[in-house]
Simulated scan of single mutants.
Amino acid sequence: MSIKITSEEAAKNLDTICNQLIDTNEVVRISRPDGKNVVLISETELESLLETLYLLRFPANSTRLFTALQRAKEKIVKPQSVSELYERLGLQEEDKSSDINLAS
Rank of each mutant, 00 (worst) to 15 (best):
V82W: 07
E51L: 15
D95G: 05
F58G: 09
V38H: 05
C18T: 10
K96C: 06
T44R: 13
E9K: 10
S98E: 11
K96Y: 14
E9S: 08
L55P: 05
Y54N: 11
T44L: 12
L49N: 08
Y86G: 07
K78W: 05
I41P: 00
R29Q: 08
A72R: 04
L50N: 12
L65Y: 01
T52I: 15
R57H: 08
I100H: 02
A72H: 03
L21H: 00
N19E: 13
D99E: 14
L65V: 03
L55K: 13
T67K: 12
T16S: 09
N13H: 09
K4A: 07
I100M: 04
S81C: 03
L89I: 08
K12R: 14
T24G: 01
S2R: 10
L102C: 06
D15C: 04
A68L: 06
A10F: 15
I41M: 10
K4T: 15
I100E: 05
E47S: 12
S62Y: 06
L91D: 07
G90D: 02
T52H: 12
E26L: 07
L40I: 07
T63R: 13
A11G: 09
L49D: 11
S104C: 11
A10H: 14
E51K: 13
I76D: 03
L49T: 09
S104T: 13
K75Q: 11
Q92E: 15
E84V: 02
I5E: 00
S98Q: 12
A72T: 04
T16P: 01
K12C: 04
K78F: 08
K75C: 01
L89S: 09
D34A: 03
I100V: 12
S98I: 11
L21N: 00
V39P: 01
V77H: 05
P33G: 07
T24D: 01
R64L: 13
L89T: 09
Q80M: 14
K78E: 11
D23R: 14
V38M: 09
P59T: 10
I17G: 02
R64K: 13
L102G: 03
E87L: 15
S98L: 12
A103G: 01
Q92A: 10
F58R: 13
K75E: 09
A11N: 10
P59H: 04
R57V: 02
A60H: 10
A60W: 11
E84L: 06
T16R: 12
S104V: 09
L89P: 02
E45K: 15
K4N: 12
S97V: 12
I41W: 02
S31H: 11
S97N: 09
T63Y: 13
R29F: 08
A68M: 06
I5Q: 01
K12W: 00
L102P: 02
